[in-house]
Design a binder for these strands. Sequence first.
DNA 1: CGTTGAATTGAGGTCACTCAATCGCAGTGG
DNA 2: CCACTGCGATTGAGTGACCTCAATTCAACG
Lengths: 249, 249
Amino acid sequence: MTKEQERAHASLPCEKCPLRKRDLFRDFEQGELDFIGRFKKGDLAVKKGATVLVEGAHNPHLYTVLSGWGFRYKLLEDGRRQIVNYVMPGDLVGLQGNLLGEMKHSVEALSSMVLCVFEKAELFSLYREFPELAYDITWIASREECMLDDNLLTVGRRTALEKVAYLLMFILERSRQCGLIGNGTVSLTQQHVADTLGLSLVHTNKTIARLAERGFLKWEDGGCRILNPEALAELADWTAEKVAKRPFL
Amino acid sequence: MTKEQERAHASLPCEKCPLRKRDLFRDFEQGELDFIGRFKKGDLAVKKGATVLVEGAHNPHLYTVLSGWGFRYKLLEDGRRQIVNYVMPGDLVGLQGNLLGEMKHSVEALSSMVLCVFEKAELFSLYREFPELAYDITWIASREECMLDDNLLTVGRRTALEKVAYLLMFILERSRQCGLIGNGTVSLTQQHVADTLGLSLVHTNKTIARLAERGFLKWEDGGCRILNPEALAELADWTAEKVAKRPFL
DNA sequence: CGTTGAATTGAGGTCACTCAATCGCAGTGG
DNA sequence: CCACTGCGATTGAGTGACCTCAATTCAACG
């Protein structure tokens, strides 16, 4: 996605939001669109590598990802990092952690991103006026929990080989769903993979090499090309969810 | 908590719910109580070791834990188990995973438990009629996500010693908050600890022994007595949350 | 062309794993 | 009363997965 396209997004009203055209997302009533339009306070455009949210900070905003992607992570005092999940178009960011109070995690952009900005303080008026949208938010939170459960299973109980296979399929499928990529390519660094899976960088590299040897994938500068998704899925005991229409804000 | 007390719970109307008396939980309006009373379809009492929910099943219900505690877990094909979180009084169970559709995890009782039963199908009417309660549900989901993030950090990036210290403090504090225990004792099996932290049973045992040597805790048949919570907290880089009043259903 | 960030490789160490045996204790049934 | 059983905790031995440290390559960039 080019810089120009992002700027185009940023200036569009919600009714024309490019996400709404996608089959993946549910249709909205005019009243809902009007409300979301008022609820939306602006756009936030950030560059690749920028920090969108910082752990420990008080942030009055809530965001929906419009374009690009990033990751949520937490740090230990001595710098050890755990990536907790990835955020992609249509995802709600900032809901995790006490609704009010300080952020419990940070968010960093993996590509340039545009986010839709909302005020947490006005969230309750949404609940009062549009129960359907409130229900949607619960649906979204529920889905996030589901992903976290899966990630926990992966980090806790799968082997290194299974972990990498799982993560790549997880990201590939999610990004395909929300239209982030067309080809079978995932752009991230091996350090990200390591920090997601609780592995060291070196061991991650060797594990990826083993998968490449088998011809399941190919690592090419700053990204990964999936050559045999079926084999990876089998290795990881992973099956694609069939996607119903999803809500978003 | 004795069997008799549980039976007493089960027959009480929501207004008299013993949880509502606790300082921990927020006060409710009469209208809210009436609604919850209608929303509630009955009680579910299970014995220690019983399976409350099964992964893969379609379950039309949603539960609030009234007494006792248990754990949520997921399995891999070959039987490897990952405990994902613990459920305690006031927690909402069954929200995780697609609101409709099959369960993505199982729940097992660690003690005898009583749960309040609701119908998922009626959840939307709650959103329509009581936005405050709907907001509460989001708050609860948000808190769960927060715990999952923390657990992921623990499993992914902490050492075995830190992991055990963290888990024990996590459970101790949560159960103290909701009044599960008075003394500094946590009743679970080392296998549970292992399956929560992504460790083997043997290594978990040796790690616990190391903590016991240092005088931080003492393992006594089917449970653990915390002797030095400060030392454990420091080891785990863990700090107690100060608890504001919490909602629940 | 020097610098920087990511990927790769090798060596050596250790943390955590598996396998296997043992022990204590609480039932349970003869 | 005592063998038998099952479950959880404990221990030892040996192994392998994963780690750290350190060096090297490679591509991109100013």
